[in-house]
Design a protein around this nucleic acid. Structure first.
Lengths: 197, 197
DNA sequence: CGCTTCATGCGAGTTCACTCTCATGAGGAG
DNA sequence: CTCCTCATGAGAGTGAACTCGCATGAAGCG
């Protein structure tokens, strides 16, 4: 195990530098991170094959799932649980906007890169629906929520609908609740056919 | 009006070249478009300040709104109308995936650029809800649908949920219907409070 | 404490997004 | 048909994302 300590120090220095720049709001570029970390650009690329994977490492710090577990303690209503999941994700996205934007943009531009993307939202959704899904078919509801409880949705609300951060979260929560409530009411989750004929 | 014809020919040659490359599936770069259009790169930049605005021009060809109008002829049920809007947008996105991905990615990365983005989805949503919104408050439902009926959602479904194109559209439609049905059922569209207590 | 290995730095190279400048030659007015 | 204007082309330049290869010096083993 050659030079493990040295390498760990280097790695965390790079991630710390990236986080530093992310917090500052400035655009995160590899040269900037390398300089901030007092490391050559080549070395940064040795640890992270590309900017996106570095950003990913910098963003994947806080544990949203733990926060959700805390927030859903004792709550069994799936509607309420889904709403809280939406709120937690929304706030997390807003907190690290710059880096999240870069990661999301990159995985949209090159879907192949999205393959390696650790999709945190699924864990949130799964946990939110856990009690209910035990006795129901949550397939379609899970997909509904995958679309709603997402950074992409947050950006749609703030950038396109021009909502303030708080309004955006409120709207996201409302949508998550509404879609969950609809699925719950529909029973086994077959919404498309429960139309008014 | 100096050299108007010439300029129009040049402009459309550039857009045509971009569309050509987009159809071919290859990545769209400014050098490639310029070469394909038999125009110098500098000239391409004279007509389009950046790649994104060129892509936008290349994508904004077909008229989704007209398609929706045709598809909702005589249909008054907002659920059905919303579903059709979702389908039309979904198919349009899939058709020009490459270019759409680039445009969406760019507007997520730089929200300022999103300001100039002609948000086609709003026209679709507005038209879908028109009959119903005349007598109801559709504020929140419009936001719900803005999140659902979007290229971003399509990419979430195909890339992250790993659905096939057809499955993705089916899921998008189902979500749009479900969310609309829920709002319609809720009456004046106040969903977050219509929870099972 | 010395020796080897390997993480690191340096620098050169490639491609693309853009920007700027300058010369040219074709379009179109007279 | 001529002459002026201006769209265009050519080319150089910047900065960022990567990639590669080579030399070095420090880490850590014996």
């Amino acid at each position: 195990m050659p030079r493990t300590n040295q390498m760990e120090r280097t790695r965390s220095a790079i991630v710390a530098a990236a986080r530093e720049i992310a917090e500052s709001g400035a655009e995160i570029t590899m040269p900037a991170v390398a300089a901030e970390a007092r490391v050559s650009e080549a070395t940064a690329y040795r640890y992270f094959p590309d900017l996106v994977s570095l950003l990913r490492a910098a963003v994947t710090a806080d544990d949203q799932l733990a926060a959700l577990q805390a927030a859903t303690e004792g709550v069994t209503d799936p509607v309420e649980r889904a709403g809280r999941a939406a709120e937690i994700l929304g706030r997390a996205v807003l907190r690290r906007q710059g880096a999240v934007r870069a990661v999301v943009a990159a995985s949209i531009a090159r879907p192949s890169a999205a393959a390696e993307r650790p999709v945190r939202r699924f864990a949130l959704i799964e946990h939110a629906l856990a009690p209910w899904a035990a006795t129901h078919d949550g397939e379609q509801l899970a997909r509904d929520l995958a679309v709603v409880i997402s950074a992409e949705s947050m950006f749609t609300l703030t950038d396109l609908c021009r909502l303030s951060p708080d309004e955006a979260i409120a709207s996201l929560v409302a949508t998550a609740r509404r879609v969950t409530a609809a699925a719950v009411r529909a029973g086994s989750g077959d919404p498309a056919h429960s139309t008014i004929t």
